[in-house]
Design a binder for these strands. Structure first.
Lengths: 222, 222
DNA sequence: TTGTTTATTTAACAGTGTTAATTAATTTTA
DNA sequence: TAAAATTAATTAACACTGTTAAATAAACAA
């Protein structure tokens, strides 16, 4: 009687694992029921015995990917201090995760999520993922008065649109054309967001580098 | 001999018009060859006599949409002065166009464009559309020394990621949950971008409104 | 070993884009 | 004008997608 439950979980795991592998390697567009089933070692339609439909399966991946992202960011920002530099590193690590797995960015922010209306909680996880994963770093900066507490929400909103805007353009339109230039733009823009409240001037050095990269971008569209 | 050319152009026009109408009304996901052909008044496969494939057809729409966007922005920013307020209005109008036609935003920035590799020029039109459409407004501000000439490219880059980031979150994830809140966030963030160089402080009023809207956003995800 | 339930697969449907073969319309030629 | 040639448009078909219903295989109970 309990064997059934174990078997069911095991089967679900096979399909989930296969789906996750395809999503990470090739992305949503090359994902199909036949595709998943083949990798899982079963026939298509077997999936329908364990999941309602392919969307059900896909959205079970979201939670795992979220946890993976959280872990990824944690590993990349271990021995840092409690300052805006650490906050910026955390944000950069978050962005890097999606650079590493563009298919997950697609799933999280590109794919229309109208078809699975009742899965609101999962959508909320995605929507607040950046804020959630960076929450500790934000709070550290607030506690130490490193950033103006008045504009926290505005700054968070600014970080959100900056990160997702840059990711969208880089992953979907190859703007800028290189990863180095992408990181540079992200760094500069984060600096400008956080330096408003501290009053620190922008380094001319950074600005120059960025200008050079931007001029490259226009002509060199791979 | 020339009749043939006229006929061909006319036929192309029928299919193009039908495609544009569907894209504007329902978006990419409900676009199909059968769909287009029905609206155009012909059978499917007739399309293949005038276009290489459906992508060929779709990407002919891009140019028209770009011109339409340019016109839209022009109409919405007529009797304004040559200052940052006008530049901000221009940027807002650009964003509004995609709010009006989410299907065009999909086509321009969401849809993967790998399948039609040789259409690089069209992709370039999309990529530079924001800069192109706002070029005059930027130049006016530069000429009148209203914004620091040193950071123009950085500021443009900031505007780009802000606009596309906000549009992505609002159109694809309903963040924030209302159009009013969206415009508010855009306004605040544009203010922060342009007020760095001018040294103008942020209005506390705006900040308060934004905070209120953000707190609404979290709970009210329709 | 039977009978019954459960697990898995095959067959089929409606949809997609696309190509080849067939019919309809038009134009050229005698 | 009538027949022939060319062009335009449609139907039929293929390979793919997600999904459901029916048929088979496996596991378990008596």
């Amino acid at each position: 009687m309990k064997d059934k439950k174990i078997h069911e979980q095991r089967m679900k795991g096979y399909f989930l694992q296969a789906t996750k592998e395809i999503l990470k390697a090739e992305g949503l567009k090359s994902l199909s029921v036949r595709n998943i089933a083949e990798k899982a070692g079963y026939s298509y339609t077997t999936m329908y015995s364990y999941f309602q439909d392919i969307n059900d399966l896909i959205f079970l991946c979201v939670h795992d990917f979220y946890e993976e992202c959280k872990l990824y960011v944690k590993d990349r920002t271990k021995k840092r201090g409690k300052n805006t530099t650490h906050l910026k590193s955390t944000i950069r690590a978050y962005a890097d995760f999606f650079i590493q797995y563009p298919g997950i960015f697609d799933l999280f922010f590109i794919e229309k999520m109208e078809d699975f209306g009742n899965k609101k909680s999962i959508v909320d996880v995605i929507n607040s993922s950046l804020d959630q994963i960076c929450e500790e770093a934000w709070n550290d900066c607030i506690a130490l008065n490193l950033i103006s507490a008045d504009h926290i929400e505005i700054m968070k909103s600014q970080v959100r649109s900056t990160v997702f805007g840059l990711l969208l353009l880089y992953l979907n339109r190859r703007i800028p054309s290189s990863y180095t230039a992408f990181v540079n733009q992200l760094n500069i823009q984060l600096d400008r967001i956080f330096d408003i409240s501290t009053g620190t001037a922008l380094s001319t050095e950074n600005a120059t580098v960025n200008n050079a990269l931007i001029s490259i971008k226009v002509g060199n569209n791979r």
